[in-house]
Every structure is written in structure tokens, then in C-alpha cells.
Design a protein around this nucleic acid. Structure first.
Lengths: 196, 196
DNA sequence: TTCATAACTGAACAAGCGTTCAAGCGGAAG
DNA sequence: CTTCCGCTTGAACGCTTGTTCAGTTATGAA
């Protein structure tokens, strides 16, 4: 029977994932050692292997659970509405979900190359699902005559790049609040694809 | 007296830099071993150290020489012209210089974290110089009444993100030629900041 | 209080790391 | 042809890597 109290498992498990996420995002998967992670958790290396089968699976699970979480929330958010309203919600969701999770999105974009082929394929699929949400909104907007998009795929990828670049330079304690930055980014996106 | 023919130095040197650039961009600095690089060059590990003092300096020199090259070319390109013309040349230059050098720009953006503090500071400076070129164009455009920019710094960073995201997904043998993709990206940039 | 066992320690493992260097090869200079 | 030396080899160095595991600790259940 599983112990419910007094067990460290329910502390060490999350601490391990937090530390790994932070360190992987900061220094890159290959540059982080299991001993570094153990040090942050406050435990010896060997103890980590009560929670994960190996380092590669740890990376994969971190990326997968983040992307699934974000996609689930997005599905709900975009269920209804016109193209303009859905675009606004997409930008809002993208920025507000990721800003407090900068480490997670940097993993999802930078560390694809550190995944073994099978894991890579699974994560790539989730990333495509995310891109396709935006692409669907653009299609809808074109159909509604609200947007003008010269090339659907290129515009989708360009806007994803625009929105994701934010996490490379934004600083929590900088000049602008998340709300201000969201308004500025939405304005750029909206104007870039507005029908004349 | 330096040998001019029959010496391998003038073959091995460039081959080393090419291989290192490719492998670093592909797998990340930390994940690439000196033995892997030597293997690609067709030489034993020890031989590499006739050309570089150590691995870290190799990374630094690759990033530095790429950025300096790009900046020098940009200085010439943007010397004259109105804001609209200079913006067009900036986008043209950015895309056409980097597309055949995808590895180099990925290094410059992804591997900043692999640099030791002193090297990091030097590279960061060059990156800022690049961003400031675009920012100068935007300022000029606003002064000329051609562009409308709500926040100069945010717009600069957003557009850099937009333009740089391209190198994450564009494929040489894909559906679109560099010229087509440049036109599409320029259109997005132009509309995003156009004065009404 | 006793017992079972989840959680952790501490040491060990083979493999691989960046870097060094004595020794040898082979083409250019004399 | 002989000498010289830039370039390369092949082995070695001390250290770190991810992972394993027998043994210890400490907790909740009985």
C-alpha cells in the first residue's frame, strides 16, 4: 500500500522535474549532468532513478507534458468565435501561458535535437498541432474576408516565429508588463495580415 | 619558411571550421566531441590542436567571424537611402546572407549560453549592433512619417524574431525559392509597421 | 513494538571527455 | 641526396559521464 504522508516521493518527484526543466533550459540538455540536478534537488544521484528510467526519458516527459498541457488549454480557448476573436485569444493564450513558463517553451523549441528519433517524432507531432491551430484561424479569417494572407503556411510559421521570439528577450522585471507586451504583439500580428 | 604546397594546413584548417560549424549547429556545442569533429575532418584528435587552442575558443571564433562578416556587409548595404528602401535591403540582406549559412546563424542564437562570460559579452555586443541597424531604420521611417511604431524596442525585437524564425523551418528544397520567401516576409514586415 | 518496504546513500562501473605530447612521416629547401 | 620541420599519429593523462546496486535509514501499517 502506497504511503500517503511522510514520504519524500511526493516532494522529490516534482522537485526533480522543476530542477531539470530549469537547468535544461538554462544550459542545454547535453551540458547538464545528473549530478547537477541531484544537487539542486538536495539528494544523491542514485536517488533520481527512483523517479525516472533515464535522462533522455526525463527530457521527453518534460517536453511532452508541457505541450499537452498547452494544447489542451488551447483547444478549450479556441472552441468558438469569429476569426478576429479567436486570433486575439490565440495571441493572449500564447503569451500568458508561456511567459511564466519560459523554461518549458525554450525546451520545446531548442532541445528537439536532443531527442532520440522516436521521441522526436512524438514531440514534433504536438508542435505541428499547435501550429495548425493558428493556421486554422488564418484560414477562417481569409474565408470571412477579414485577413489577407499571401501564403498560408509561410504566414503561419512567420507569425509563430514572431510570437515565440518574445520569449528570447522579454524580462520579467523589464519596462513592460505582460499585458502591454501582448497588446503590442497583437497589434503587429493584426496589421500584418489585415485585409485592406 | 612556410610551406605553400603539399602542406595539409590550408586544407585541414578550413575543413575543421566547416565541420565544427555544422556539427555544433546540428547537435549543440556540448553534445559534439572533438573526436567527432576530427572524424569529419579525416584526422586524429590531436591534430586539431595545431589549429585551435581549445574547444571553447573554436566556438567563439566561429560565432565572432560570422557576425563580423554579416555586420560588415550590412554596414555597406545600409549606408544610403530612405527608410523604405533601407528596410527592403535589410530584409533582403538578412534572408539572403543567412539562408546559405543556416548553421552559422543558429550558432549565433542558440549557443550564446555555451560561451564563457568574457566571450559571451563580446558576441552579445555584436548581436546588439545588428538589432540596432533595424532599430535605426524604424526610427528613420517614423521620422519620415512612413512607419507607425507603438514601441520602438519591442517592434525591433519582434521583427528580428519574425525574420529569424524563418531559419528554423525553411528547407532548401521546399516549395518556395528564397526570392519568393523574401517577398512574403517583406510584405508581412511592411504591413506590420505601415503608417495608416 | 515489530515489521515491511519506500526512499536514499555511497561507492563502484565502464565508457567517454578535452587536452597533451613524444615519436614519426613526408614534402620542400639547400 | 640530405636535412629540416610542419603536420599528423597514437597513446596516454586525469576527470567526468550516465547508470547500477548492495546496504542503510526511517516511516506507516499491523
Amino acid at each position: 500500500m502506497a504511503r500517503k504522508q511522510g514520504s519524500h516521493a511526493e516532494i522529490t518527484g516534482p522537485k526533480l522535474r522543476e530542477a531539470a526543466l530549469r537547468l535544461f533550459a538554462q544550459s542545454g540538455y547535453a551540458a547538464v549532468t545528473m549530478r547537477q540536478i541531484a544537487g539542486e534537488v538536495g539528494v544523491q544521484v542514485g536517488a533520481l532513478y527512483n523517479y525516472i528510467p533515464d535522462k533522455q526519458t526525463l527530457l521527453y516527459e518534460l517536453m511532452k507534458s508541457h505541450l499537452e498541457e498547452v494544447l489542451d488549454a488551447l483547444d478549450v480557448e479556441l472552441r468558438t468565435g469569429g476569426a478576429e476573436e479567436r486570433l486575439r485569444r490565440f495571441v493572449h493564450h500564447h503569451i500568458h501561458v508561456h511567459l511564466p513558463r519560459r523554461d518549458a517553451i525554450r525546451l520545446a523549441y531548442d532541445e528537439l535535437r536532443s531527442l532520440e528519433p522516436q521521441n522526436f517524432a512524438a514531440i514534433e507531432k504536438l508542435r505541428h498541432a499547435y501550429e495548425n491551430h493558428l493556421q486554422g484561424i488564418l484560414e477562417q479569417g481569409v474565408a470571412e474576408g477579414l485577413f489577407r494572407v499571401a501564403d498560408l503556411r509561410v504566414t503561419t510559421m512567420a507569425l509563430i516565429g514572431l510570437l515565440t521570439g518574445l520569449f528570447g528577450w522579454y524580462r520579467e522585471n523589464g519596462r513592460l508588463t505582460p499585458v502591454e507586451v501582448e497588446a503590442l504583439y497583437y497589434d503587429l500580428v493584426r496589421k500584418a495580415i489585415a485585409a485592406p
